[in-house]
Design a protein around this nucleic acid. Structure first.
Lengths: 342, 342
DNA sequence: ATGAAAGCGCTAACAA
DNA sequence: TTGTTAGCGCTTTCAT
């Protein structure tokens, strides 16, 4: 029932049956222009009849390139990252690459293992969302293995590689400005882990907006927490138990905002009435929660597409200088940032 | 900066530098017991110094097995499936396999491409959550390529392969019974696509519970829709615009329930007060929404672990008969299934 | 337009 | 315990 690969059909079998030589078959299979159309047709027909399967292990041994690209993601259960992964995979896949997608679960050791493993499979390049706390020498490891790397969403400290960032600073600046314009006076920033660059960027946007509106802001607090619903809900509940209670919560991301919703509701308050809430990312579901979430559109698909393009570019031109790309975010005003509860 | 694999260090280089032969090096690298400990140590040391990277393409050419397993998922942006994928990947990874994770986006053609592509990479087995509408001959294709397959979460019609199912029938039976016990009299089942086996199973559980409680149920409706928040929210809103309005909504899954929450709230009703709602799966976030979601614990991790085990078993014993596994679900009563609004 | 032949890096008999 | 040798299936000059 299940074919044994050991008695696999090879180009030699095709050669025998079609009457051409091994090399002609190989060329024909690669759609080489050197082969006459009619013979290619014959060869492809025989290949189909025999159930031939191209053996990339063998090809890789001779060819300098493989069609394998690694996609190393810190947390696939976070919708932002899974949507990003899907976008990258789609782009790379449509360019003929096979994407090896791996989840590191924010585990640095696993991340190192994964890199080694990918290198053994002759992977030429990787796109990575680095796990929290990824050290700078990680880049060196990747390069030692002969792979190009581009990071996305999170930079590695002092990194010397291509990077596609999300527009965290400006995103949070936009949402903070908006929430102040809505009349919030006691602000809270919720979510993210200290020491992480993405967190610092977003915090910078928060502070910038506050400086920009000093007269209007009575108080503000910073409340880091793990980037998941549960942690955000808990932080919010304790936040609401302290004075002055915030009337505007700027969240690290949409996922955090979902947790904040729950924390607010558990305290008997209403989102978009008693407390204005904003997110960032515009993940699936941000428009479907109630009240719908005011957030920033960071264009996940565009980021993924760009990351794929940059890696492909890097692979074809290894010597060009490293670059940072950032795709501008846009404010998306929905219901959660209203403040009509007095 | 980036090593060129073409001038890669091979076991021959290690042999030269260490003074042993190629085969001794090969055996040593494989931790063969035939090689003296001391020489293995020397060889490993030289390998490290040279920055040797094992070339699996070359090894695959000789060995009957690769360490590659394919994980083919219908929709990675659905939390149930991404959590399942992560669980499977973890289990397989800790057994030394490299998992090639691919997202098919419910696209049957992409699914076929993916299978072909995996076979070219000498993948020995795949775990797949089939895309909607996957035809029965898909199994034949997979087997023609010499790969073993186990399906998980969704069966393929009349399939002849191992299958790990989620306990849909009983899950929905449990939630429906519970919601009736809570006092709901006008029931609605929301979510899922007609013709899909998983949908039919869950529906069967729904009907079974209704038969079981005929005297208590005044009316019920079936409302299929795509398995995402947005579709569920819309269906719910139109559902609540018709008479008799349901006071109990049994959802196809937690993700659907999230959409139902939003639909209910948009109509000015309250979940767990005016309308009881239940989900299925217990994905991350089910306990964090407000009100917390009554659902069934289907043990995603256990399902993933079992799927991995079954595939590994199949690979080592291709001839044993196919089996179906189902892990029993348990009812998880939380806030959303209350009914105190009279 | 097609064929012959060498060799990619590795494993696995078989010898020694 | 270690070395010798023959390929695995493919690509790719170089001939023809």
């Amino acid at each position: 029932m299940i074919n044994n690969r050991s008695k696999a059909v090879t180009i030699i079998k095709i050669a025998e049956k079609s009457g051409f030589s091994k090399s002609t078959v190989s060329l024909a299979l690669q759609h080489s222009p050197k082969i006459k159309k009619s013979t290619r047709k014959k060869i492809l027909k025989v290949a189909r009849e025999l159930g031939y399967v191209y053996n990339r292990s063998a090809a890789n041994l001779r060819k300098p390139h493989s069609n394998l690209i690694g996609l190393v993601i810190n947390d696939l259960t976070n919708p932002f990252f899974s949507e990003l992964a899907v976008a990258i995979e789609q782009e790379l896949g449509s360019s003929g690459y096979v994407v090896v997608l791996v989840n590191t679960s924010e585990n640095i050791e696993k991340q190192e293992q994964v890199i080694r493993s990918l290198s053994e499979h002759n992977v030429k390049g990787v796109i990575v969302c680095p796990a929290l706390g990824t050290p700078n020498n990680f880049i060196g490891h990747v390069n030692q293995y002969g792979m190009a790397m581009v990071t996305v969403a999170r930079p590695i400290p002092h990194q010397k590689c291509d990077f596609i960032s999300v527009d965290g600073d400006n995103s949070i600046f936009l949402t903070t400005e908006h929430i102040i314009a809505q009349g919030a006076r006691n602000l809270a920033f919720v979510g993210g882990e200290e020491g992480n660059a993405a967190f610092e960027h977003r915090l910078a946007g928060f502070h910038r907006a506050i400086k920009n509106n000093q007269a209007k802001v009575d108080s503000f607090t910073i409340n880091p927490c793990a980037i998941n619903r549960n942690a955000a809900s808990k932080v919010t509940q304790s936040l609401l138990a302290t004075e002055p209670q915030p009337d505007g919560i700027i969240c690290y991301s949409d996922l955090v905002a979902f947790g904040v919703y729950s924390g607010i509701q558990r305290c008997g308050k209403r989102v978009g009435i008693d407390i204005a809430v904003t997110g960032m990312d515009n993940i699936q579901g941000a428009s479907d929660v109630h009240p719908s979430l005011t957030t920033t559109e960071v264009f996940i698909e565009a980021i993924g597409k760009r990351a794929a393009e940059v890696l492909l570019k890097r692979l074809s031109a290894p010597e060009i200088p490293f670059s940072n790309y950032s795709i501008s975010a846009e404010l998306l005003i929905r219901e959660s940032s209203s403040l009509s509860g007095g």
